[in-house]
Design a protein around this nucleic acid. Structure first.
Lengths: 234, 234
DNA sequence: CGGGTGATTGAGCCCGCTCAACTCTCGTGG
DNA sequence: CCACGAGAGTTGAGCGGGCTCAATCACCCG
């Protein structure tokens, strides 16, 4: 049974009322949606943004940094559902309550919008509603790919697939700066930190990548990495 | 490495053109959406409804029976993403291509709608778009719960959670008729058929359930079952 | 330099997989 | 009616991939 002894209880200092504004730019929820006023807000590393089960008062758009979402079992086992990067929308729930906890992986800046305003806008503007539908569909797509990884892939395949995901969201050139710890990666991939570490080592000795510091990875052989990731093909 | 020796290649006899109509009721896509014409269509057990990667020409609403959706790896490993029951909408993709394969678990009847018509309707009716958004969000919710199960739960926990899901979709009374095989259950839960079978046996000797025939399960002690499912609690 | 956190590596174990035998059910045909 | 066969499910024995526990290393900040 997997247990996290380092069950860091995060500080909960989140907006019960509308958050104090640090800057106050008026930004659209997404391109072509200029109407909704948003407020910039920042979080420091490991700070909780919202908790599972809390009423979903706000919708969040990443400006900078990285955040993770997760679910917990009562004994501390954790499953990270997703990492979100600048430009991503998250916390956009139907049904009033957040279904995962969101925390900052690094110091992060977001723009927050009132969920009610967002839904009201969608209710009278079909284009906005379609856009939100498309965003949910994209998240669903990612989740279904993740199901295959968690249900059926080996440790090395999971780590290879993860690195390809990160490479796709990185500046390009094959050099990846991982913003998250091994624990975050392990909890995302359904493994332990030791197994993740061993998989990195295996991929390195197979010549697929080179590590320069624990967080910096050079992809040497993308084709080999894709092969090891066992991408689906039906 | 898990391999399916029984990689039953399903017959592919699916509508390239609009399917032959068996009956022709005009039904709404969902309650309060009367405009879209749908056509009833039936599939027999194990028949493919659509394949992963195929253009998504239609959207499907379950009338009777049960269907499953899945992804495959190149070596035959399979992950079942979901089972769909009467009333469920499925195959409703954004982006033009189906992301999983859909097959009939039992003989099944559906009503199909043209995806383009459905999207066109959403584009001019915000209420419809919001409804479709809500449906995608519900699917996402289920998928995220499934991630936790696949990433972090033990075999017995997975099977207990699965039975609770099935019980929730069954007529009530604690008696469940499972429409799918052990292989389907195993591929849904990221396990093997043998492990699923052993988990059933364990739950039975723990007094949580009673089996009368492989497909018929009586839930004896729902509380114990919920306990064994280790439902999340953060 | 020391303390602390995160990452790597090693040794051994265990849960779930593999392989195999057997049972059960059901449909088919003599 | 039973015999037979085929597919689905159960159970057992043994193995192995990933987990546990532990030691060591790397790095950062004081």
């Amino acid at each position: 049974m997997l247990m996290h002894t380092t069950a860091t209880q995060r500080t909960r200092a989140r907006p019960q009322s509308f958050p104090v504004r640090t800057h106050a730019p008026i930004q659209g929820l997404f391109a072509g949606c200029p109407e909704l006023p948003g407020v910039r807000f920042t979080y420091s590393r490991d700070e909780e943004i919202y908790g599972e089960g809390e009423p979903a008062e706000f919708v969040y758009k990443m400006v900078s940094g990285v955040i993770r979402t997760h679910k917990l079992l009562s004994d501390g086992r954790r499953q990270v559902g997703a990492f979100h990067f600048p430009g991503d929308l998250f916390g956009c729930e139907r049904g009033g309550a957040h279904r995962l906890t969101a925390e900052a992986v690094t110091d992060a800046a977001v723009v927050v919008y009132r969920r009610r305003s967002c839904e009201a806008l969608a209710a009278r503007d079909a284009a906005v509603a379609c856009r939100l539908w498309a965003l949910a569909a994209r998240d669903l797509d990612r989740a279904e790919e993740h199901l295959l990884l968690l249900g059926r892939k080996t440790a090395v395949e999971r780590v290879a697939a993860f690195l390809l995901q990160m490479a796709a969201r990185s500046p390009a050139g094959g050099s990846i700066e991982l913003p998250m710890t091994r624990r975050d990666i392990a909890d995302y991939l359904g493994l332990t930190i030791e197994t993740v570490s061993r998989a990195f080592s295996q991929l390195q000795s197979a010549g697929a990548l080179h590590r320069s510091g624990a967080r910096r990875v050079q992809v040497r052989d993308p084709a080999a990495l894709r092969e090891m990731a066992e991408q689906e093909l039906s």
